[in-house]
Amino acid sequence: MSEILVLVDHVDGNVRKTTNELLTIARRLGEPSAVFIGSGDAPVDALKKFGAEKIYAVDDAEIKGYLVAPKAEVLAQLAEKTSPGAILIPSSAEGKEIAGRLAIKIESGVITDAVDVTEGGVTTQSVFAGSFTVQAKVSKGTPIITVKPNSAAPEEVAGAGAVEQFAATVSDGAKTAQIVASQPRQSTGRPELTEAAIVVSGGRGTGGNFEPVENLADALGAAVGASRAAVDSGWKPHTFQVGQTGKTVSPQLYVANGISGAIQHRAGMQTSKTIVAVNKDEEAPIFELVDFGVVGDLHTVLPALTEEINKRK
């Protein structure tokens, strides 16, 4: 069985859930080899737990100060060495860019934003604002596939987790876009927006008061999202934005509050399993999508709902 390279998504060595999902998918295609680009020891136990047979540890001393290009070089060199059956990369902005550069380097086809990958390497994508699904396959070279969060239920299977240090050579040409400053995102203490099972969002209708939205989110153990109108008004940072130019989320439950449901917002949430909305305008287009909707003022409905939920707990 051929190796399947999985680029590990981590923050300071803490492996993110998306990696477990990618390792799970990799097992359908071959033998998962985790590629850990970072400082210090590789998080062997975390990677073994979800089936990593091998772990390529790449020291990031020469990599972390530069945007995207060095990581694409590392993967190209590993691909050369291991002739993998496929390369799986998390579908973040950076992940997709790494995939794009890698595709040119190793002359291989790339598929982005897969929500599923089958044994034969057939991917499923959701396109045109979630109104179509597409099945596709890489037809040239080593399939490079970026996979969205929540695309598989992570399965725990012990892997050998054999660590191999990989000394990549990073060219000067890859060290031209420098990260001159970096401010880590502050943890909200809530689930990650793209990974959460429940997302509670607020829009212009909050009038800038997100408290009812946040309290409901906490009662449900949910992540908080926002429309672009709310972000543009400065009520929430851009990292909260759901939609075409923000995050795409596909949770079990999406609760839209004071959000009209513009096509660009829908593009980021339309594939949620269950959709609920609270909006005071019964004509709001968001109501075309919902499984359950309440026509009402979010400032009264949400606190009452939160109280009801807390009572039932």
């Binding site: 979630g130 699904t133 597409v134 596709a136 890489v138 919902v290 359950f292 909707g293």
Partner: peptide, 23 residues
């Protein structure tokens, strides 16, 4: 010449509006 091939496209069934109540 594309390095990827689309095998199938399917329109997602449109979401049917669910229950709407007025508060």
């Amino acid at each position: 010449a594309a390095w990827t091939a689309v095998e199938e496209t399917t329109a997602r069934p449109p979401r049917t509006a669910g229950e709407i109540v007025t508060d």
